[in-house]
Design a protein around this nucleic acid. Structure first.
Lengths: 239, 239
DNA sequence: ACCTGAACACCGTTCAAGT
DNA sequence: ACCTGAACACCGTTCAAGT
C-alpha cells in the first residue's frame, strides 16, 4: 500500500557496494513505513523515537544515523503521505474539475493516517511528492489561462484551506475517551439567548458530513476563481 | 493590553469570601497572561509547565490546581488570543466587507503571539470569545440572506482558510537558526526542468507579503459566495 | 486553601564503545 | 558501517505533607 520515498537528506549514501557484514536493520524508507504504521496505532502525541525504535527492534539512538532529528523523520513522513496523489491521471479536462480533484486527493492523503494533517502542518517537505503536487496544481491553473501570480496565490489558497479543513476534521473525529466529546460540550455552552446565530447552526457545524463541508468550501474557491477571471493580471484593489 | 478571560472550568470557585491567609500567588487569568508572554519569548515547543511555573515563582505542581492538564491551559490561551476580535464595531454595513474584516481580525489575533496559530489549531475552546466570534461570523451571513446551512458552512470555510493561512504564515516567518531557511531550500530543490510551473511561481510563493496572499484567498471566498447567491437553499450538486 | 518536595514514568539526543 | 549502552538534561503529572 504505502511505499515511502526517500527525501534525500544531506549525507545520504547509496546501498553499500558490497554487503559484507550483516545487512542494516534500518533504512530510511522502512523507518518511514513503520513510523506511519505506528502513527495509525498510537497517534502523533505517542509517536516517540523510543517507541518507534522498539517497533523496529533497535535502540533509539540508532534512528539518528538515518534522521538527524525527529522533525526530519516527521518531514519524511509528511512527504510519504502525499505519495499517491499523482499516481493516476486527472480524469477530467475541465480546469475546475481538475483543481477540485487535486484538492480532494490532498484531503484523502492527509486523512489516510491518524493525525496526518498535524504531521503535514508541522513540516515543510521539499521532496518530489510535495513539490510535484504543487507544480501540478499551479499547472492546472496556468493551463486555464490564469495569470502566473494568480495561479500561485490560488494554489496557496486551495492548499491552506485543505490543510485547515483536514486539521479540524481529524480533530473532530478524535475519540476523546475521557470527558464529553466536542459536540456535546458545544451544545452545553451554546445557548440560543447568548448565541442567536450560532445555536441554530450547531447541527450543521457538528455534523460528521465533513465531505459536504469540504465540497462547499472548494466550490466557493472555484466560483471565486471563475469570477476573478483569467488574463495577464488580477483585478487588484480596484476590482 | 491582553487581559485573559476565564473559560470557566468544572471546579471553579469565585474569589474566597474572606481573604484570610495570604492571597494566592496564582489564578487562571494571571497564569494565562504570563503563559502568553512566555509563549512570545520562547515559542510553543519550549513552553513547558515547569518553565511557566518558574516564571510565576511557583513549583510546576501548583499549576494543576488551576488547569487540570497542559492542554486545558493551552485552550484558555487560545480563547484569550481571540479576546480583541469583537472589541470594536465592524465599520462597514456591507456584508462582504464585514466578513473580510472579521477574517482579518482573526488572522491578526493568531499572529499577535508567537505560534499563536499552532496554539489555536491544537485546541477547541468553548469560551465566549471563540463562540462570540463564530456567532458574529454566521450572523453577518444570515443578515445578508444566506441560507442557514450555507451561512454555517461558509463560516467554517473562512475559519479553516484563515487557520491554514496563518499556520503557514507563522511557520514561514520562523527564523531557523541552523540550516538554510525554507525559501533557500526550495530554490535549491525546485529546478525549472522538473517543476516547470512551480519554478516561475517561487518568487510569489516565497514572498513575505502574506497579507497579499490572505487578501487574495479571502476575495476568492467572497466572490464565490456572491456567485453562490442568497436564498433558502444552496444550489447543491446540480449547480 | 494553596503550595512544596519529591517522586513516577517518561522524553529527544549524544557519543564512546563494541562487533 | 551500524548498532548498543549509558548517560544528559529535560518532560507532564500526581500526591502526601507542610503552612
Amino acid at each position: 500500500m504505502s511505499s515511502a520515498s526517500t527525501p534525500g537528506p544531506p549525507g545520504a549514501r547509496p546501498a553499500a557496494t558490497t554487503t559484507r557484514g550483516r545487512p542494516p536493520k534500518l533504512d530510511q524508507a522502512r523507518t518511514v513505513d513503520v513510523a506511519l504504521a505506528l502513527l495509525d496505532e498510537v497517534g502523533l502525541d505517542a509517536l516517540t523515537m523510543r517507541r518507534l525504535a522498539e517497533a523496529m527492534d533497535v535502540r533509539a539512538g540508532a534512528l539518528y544515523r538515518y534522521f538527524a532529528t525527529k522533525h526530519e523523520l516527521l518531514t519524511a513522513m509528511a512527504e510519504a503521505l502525499l505519495a499517491d496523489c499523482l499516481d493516476r491521471p486527472l480524469p477530467s479536462p475541465d480546469w475546475s474539475e481538475r483543481l477540485a480533484e487535486l484538492a480532494r486527493r490532498m484531503r484523502s492523503a492527509l486523512l489516510s493516517r491518524r493525525d496526518g494533517a498535524r504531521v503535514y502542518a508541522g513540516t515543510h517537505s521539499t521532496g518530489r511528492h510535495t513539490l510535484g503536487f504543487a507544480d501540478t496544481l499551479i499547472g492546472v491553473l496556468r493551463e486555464a489561462d490564469f495569470a502566473p501570480d494568480d495561479a500561485a496565490r490560488a494554489a496557496l489558497t486551495v492548499v491552506n484551506f485543505t490543510l485547515g479543513h483536514t486539521l479540524e476534521e481529524q480533530a473532530a473525529r478524535q475519540v476523546t475517551d475521557d470527558g464529553p466529546a466536542d459536540p456535546e460540550r458545544l451544545r452545553e455552552a451554546v445557548t440560543p439567548a447568548q448565541y442567536p446565530h450560532l445555536a441554530p447552526a450547531l447541527p450543521v457545524l457538528t455534523s460528521t458530513d465533513f465531505a459536504a463541508h469540504f465540497t462547499f468550501g472548494l466550490r466557493l474557491l472555484i466560483e471565486g476563481l471563475r469570477a476573478t477571471g483569467r488574463g495577464p493580471a488580477s483585478p487588484g484593489a480596484d476590482g
